[in-house]
Design a protein around this nucleic acid. Structure first.
Lengths: 201, 201, 201, 201
DNA sequence: CATGAATGAGCATTCATTCAT
DNA sequence: TATGAATGAATGCTCATTCAT
């Protein structure tokens, strides 16, 4: 197995478990069954490990999202496919998902190139998709930038919850719930805000 | 001036800026214009400062939410009032809001009583409100626990974004956008999921 | 009650219990029911408290020993009276005795005037007594300086033991054992205890 | 060179000189010519260093004393051999001896396994030897437990004195004085030192 | 390539002492 | 006198990083 991937894998495990600061190179090396020094043959610093994780995961999602745009999907289909992709990723590698969510909130980590990309470029692509959907009249009028971020962070939140509740509910149910939730939030059609209704009365 | 509040205030500032680990007692004391030792006159440990912040903020929100339930508001009104309250809090004390969002994701902090309350009891109260709204037929059928958490974390996410973009958009606009978003996501009435529509075609 | 004595009393208690370094002014003040600042009205420093204890206890013993020399006792009688005096002191104020033994071994404390006196002048007086006894042919030939110190430290050791064993044996028994032990060690030739001789006469 | 022994050696030096509390890891490391962190590669804490010293020295003495019992020595010979052994140890490593005596009186250190063993098990073995000697009629009737402790602590005291007086008197003289002192204190009846008897034969 | 002992700046915390009240 | 909140130097210990083997 590629040693760089071996390190990344165990680093993600330990960071997910103990947080970035609790994850010492010694512990990561121990888990990976290698020497501390070996980590520094593949990464310049501990920070770079985290950065690498974010860069890799960003690339995967970016590629997928850009790929979606080349095909002739409705926005709802895109949303669905992206959520499926996202959840599949999380299922296949739980700790990496946790790390993405956990460590992106830390201000000291937000200067990392990978974290920054993950946090700004990904919602950006998503916002573009929302804007196109709006142009095509597939969804209601909304601030696409803002809505993209709400959705992006809601997914983060949903994932956080999933860790906690020892999964009473299956991933499938949660995905469905999320899709419905978001679709209702952004879809075209009926319904003004109730207080506008109130004002009519 | 109350020294405990002085410490809390500057601790929140520094934690918001540098993260919990970057916020050393030395720096906090420096900002507050007091000696390091003084911190430990009011708090048993650095951890206790963070915990205190969470406990206090939890109490405020709990009180407000429980207060809402005693009055005869529609769910939409409740949602609106809570968002108003929440955003007002954040506006009046930006760093505390940042801390709440930032530090609640760290696994090492999640064992703190205050963090735990904030992360579990608050969505719980919110879930109760959603459940009642469902019973009264105010909103569509949904998993109230899960929806509560999506909303809760979306607010967290929205707040995170607000910090970043040097507020191109005003709080008022964001509040309105969020209200609309959530209300559409959960309101009664029209509209099945589009793919169900597709299947009909 | 004299406040200086009040402080000394509780300081001795705490030092006996936790050692000099474990005895913080805060704890001492707490036990004495006074404020920390008050201690510093009566003592220049924490070190001075310890010094004061040693000086006071040294004075008591010095006075007693010098007093013995003015009277016409046999050496055995003197030894007996001194042991009685010493044990009586310990019984009436256990923690002070513990402090004397405990803290005199610490090299950082040995520069204190009081500790130094206790550790050097007291055995010196005792050595003089031994020397006189030798001159009068009451005891065997020995190095009086050295013997004085052996005896002095044996008493310290005996006292240390007394603390530990929850006193299975009474003070009286221990005193008798010590007297016999020392007397045999230094007496002229074989023979009975001198006061047994006296009783015979 | 073994680094654990290097640390122990310099730790003992510094503790002997400044006491346990004055011996900071920084100073110990400085003396040993290593970094502070290196200490913690070999010892879990500063306390463990002290404990290790006591455990090691206890083992040495225990082994020697138990070894004596397997051979057919008279008690006087045993006493003599033990004193010789003890003083040889002290001569070859002065600071360790000082530490044993100095730090065993501190109540906070007395909970350490090694200190406890040194202070209770060693006199216990000695007491057994005294009891056997009594049974064989080699020495007078006495409380073997108590006498063992007097002797044990007298040796401690004698050692303490030795440090101080810049050794006016040689170790040999002191050993002889101690042997005579103890032998007189415990021997059967009047009489000469046993080895003088031996020489007579 | 791989190792892991060694490093030392930096951390959270304590506590003897002061001083305005 | 008496107070006790405030101080900040100093403590024991950790951990990201290096480098000789």
């Amino acid at each position: 197995m590629d040693k760089k991937q071996l390190i990344i894998k165990h680093a993600a495990d330990v960071i997910a478990e103990k947080g970035y600061h609790g994850a010492t190179p010694k512990v990561i090396a121990g888990r990976a069954g290698i020497a501390v020094g070996t980590i520094y043959l593949y990464f310049k610093s501990k920070e770079e490990i985290l950065n690498y994780i974010f860069v890799e995961e960003f690339k995967k999602r970016e590629k997928f999202l850009l790929g979606l745009n080349t095909k002739d999907y409705s926005f709802y289909e895109k949303l669905e496919l992206f959520l499926d992709f996202h959840f599949d990723e999380l299922e296949s590698d739980e700790s990496t998902g946790t790390v993405l969510i956990q460590e992106s909130t830390n201000p000291q980590q937000q200067s990392l190139e990978g974290v920054q990309k993950f946090l700004t470029e990904l919602p950006e692509i998503f916002a573009d998709m929302l804007q196109q959907a709006q142009n095509k009249n597939e969804i209601r009028a909304l601030d696409s930038q803002f809505a993209a971020r709400i959705i992006f962070h809601s997914i983060r939140g949903a994932v956080m919850e999933l860790k906690k509740e020892a999964v009473q509910k299956g991933h499938e149910d949660i995905k469905h719930e999320l899709k419905t939730f978001f679709w209702n939030a952004i879809k075209k059609k009926e319904g003004e805000l109730p207080n506008e209704n109130h004002q009519d009365e």
